[in-house]
Design a protein around this nucleic acid. Structure first.
Lengths: 151, 151
DNA sequence: ACCGGTTCCGAATACTCTTCGGGGTATGGC
DNA sequence: GCCATACCCCGAAGAGTATTCGGAACCGGT
């Protein structure tokens, strides 16, 4: 399903999405035209879902990150879907997970400082009727692995 | 610190890191040469930390994701640093957060299936002496916002 | 108005992307 | 063995893009 060349292409593009096709081809040892077609095939197949610049939240004035675990009651579609939309529309939100367990959602946010986080929690979350419980954990450091490979 | 053009460049590149410089320039209404220089300045300043292809874990045979909350005892440098290296070397790991609270780390993993997750937990984590407590939460869905802006 | 510093632009060259025809190579039928 | 099919790969070349650089425009201070 994914041969050695595809895996190498994936690795290189996860490492640097702006590498030129020519350089990419040289790195994985195929002709540029072949490489281009393989990249497009990976996109068509959905293996390559997109290419994104990685901006540093700290450099954008948001040096503090946190996870907010949220319990939403009642936990049904009519309540959950607007809540998801609300969270994704918050500029503070970086990522949102819908999870199984005591908590229902884990929201990853980046904020200016502790006061900003407090305002977000009080005005943004606890003021909503469906939010039954909140638990916030500060993030000291967050490391994302860019090169995830096939298993 | 970040004018409207920089913000627009950031937005476009977070949306599609492989856009050509010419198209990017057209979108943000500056000359191509200006645009190129601004992108490089953003990289120099560390605002643009990198460009990464986004691979779909499910398409790579890892449709199941989970958070693993870990308590590491004793929580000191000599124990924590090897643990971090261990987690980052796991092919299953997508991201690792060092957090404040009852738990010390939150590990985001993508695995093949429940059996794979179980093996990872038992053989990878609980077999390590410093791992004092584990709590695993399955992820139903994970949405990452690509366009984080300045505040 | 003048200066210094900065930012922006456009033209030109060097380089890259992309298409497409053609040629290998593996597979399976006979 | 021999052919047909399908697949993948390659190189050449025109179209398109990146990058550099000199000069123009702007801005704030005096």
């Amino acid at each position: 399903m994914l041969d050695a060349i595809d895996a190498a292409i994936l690795r290189e593009l996860q490492n640097d999405a702006r590498i030129s096709n020519k350089d990419l081809a040289a790195r994985v040892n195929v002709a540029a035209s072949t490489c281009l077609e393989r990249v497009r095939a990976l996109q068509r197949r959905g293996v390559l879902a997109g290419f994104h610049a990685d901006a540093d939240p700290a450099a954008l004035g948001r040096p503090l990150q946190a996870y907010i675990a949220v319990r939403v009651r009642p936990h049904n579609r009519d309540v959950v879907e607007p809540f998801i939309r609300f969270v994704l529309d918050l500029p503070e939100t970086i990522a949102l997970s819908h999870i199984a367990g005591a908590d229902d959602f884990l929201v990853h946010v980046a904020v200016r400082d502790a006061a900003h986080l407090q305002r977000l929690l009080l005005d943004g979350f606890t003021s909503r009727r469906e939010v039954a419980h909140l638990e916030t954990q500060l993030i000291f450091s967050h490391i994302r692995k860019w090169d995830i490979g096939p298993m």
